[in-house]
Design a protein around this nucleic acid. Structure first.
Length: 263
DNA sequence: CGGGCCTCCTGGTAGC
DNA sequence: TGCTACCAGGAGGCCC
């Protein structure tokens, strides 16, 4: 579930609660969320480290500190989120990792289904390369034209391509559906049926809605009323025309769409 | 290369 | 009421 807009929200949250603060220790409650690090190595790297900066690429959040040249990396899978709490409070249920600061506050990495990870990267660039991630969907240097070109180098279904992190990083099921909805395209639209200009329009729409989504998540404002996002429920209706929404499996994912607006 | 399916993982819920 | 089966989906792996 956490896609680019949500992770951008987590980034702002981490910034607000941690930048300038020093990590006293790291408590790993479930080491299954760790990849390529042990609780010991993670603890050692972050002990007495002051959080200096954060970064994001697609659905990955990076946390930089003064103590090491590397980055703490957080991925949220489908159910992950962060929660800040004070010294005298208990961590949320399903907490997997706790970052405790010298001021007594904590940030919990919570992930009920554990389809995410906590890991380490020497640099953001090497991590992005190692994981074969495409450019971030909202990168300043990714024009709609370039975004479209990357889509056009693939065949198959548009939705698959939008969710493929190696093409462009950041979109998941929900925002891919939003893109298709805002473009008025049926869920099973194939890239073979799209012209370069269509792809550019899709890219432009994708970037626009992700930007809007990001602002909404970072400032906890509701999304525009004509967005599909808040209506992804059984028996809900199209926010544009009121028609009953339909679901279909595309690329293995439940796809919500309006049978009238998306033909 | 793309699609389909499986795995990981847990809690909510539909159905018997 | 209580059990089981299924579903949610990000991502990697496997086979066709």
């Amino acid at each position: 579930m956490p896609e680019l807009p949500d992770v951008a929200g987590f980034q702002a949250y981490f910034e607000d609660h941690a930048v300038g603060n020093t990590i006293e220790h790291v408590t790993v409650l479930d080491s299954r969320v760790l990849t390529d690090v042990t609780p010991q190595s993670l603890g050692k790297r972050l002990h007495n480290a002051q959080v200096t900066t954060t970064n994001r690429h697609g659905k990955y959040l990076f946390v930089g500190t003064s103590a090491d040249n590397g980055w703490l990396v957080l991925h949220f899978g489908m159910t992950g989120y962060l929660e800040h709490y004070q010294e005298n409070e208990d961590p949320p249920k399903q907490t997997n990792v706790i970052f405790t600061f010298t001021n007594g506050a904590h940030i919990a990495y919570v992930n009920q289904r554990r389809l995410g990870e906590v890991t380490w990267a020497d640099t953001v660039a090497t991590f992005v390369e190692a994981r074969e991630l495409g450019p971030d969907a909202l990168s300043d240097t990714l024009s709609p034209r370039q975004f479209a070109d990357r889509l056009a180098h693939h065949r198959g279904m548009l939705k698959s391509a939008l969710m493929n992190q190696s093409i462009v990083a950041g979109m998941g099921n929900e925002w891919a559906d939003e893109t298709l909805f805002q473009c008025g395209l049926p869920p099973k639209t194939s890239l073979a049926n799209l012209k370069p200009d269509d792809c550019e329009q899709i890219a432009r729409t994708a970037q626009r809605i992700l930007r809007t989504g990001m602002r909404a998540r970072c400032k906890s404002r509701p999304l525009p009323k004509h967005y599909l996002n808040a209506h992804r429920h059984k028996d809900d209706k199209c926010p544009k025309c009121g028609t009953d929404l339909t679901t279909v499996k595309v690329a293995g994912r439940t796809t919500f769409y309006c049978p009238k607006c998306q033909q």
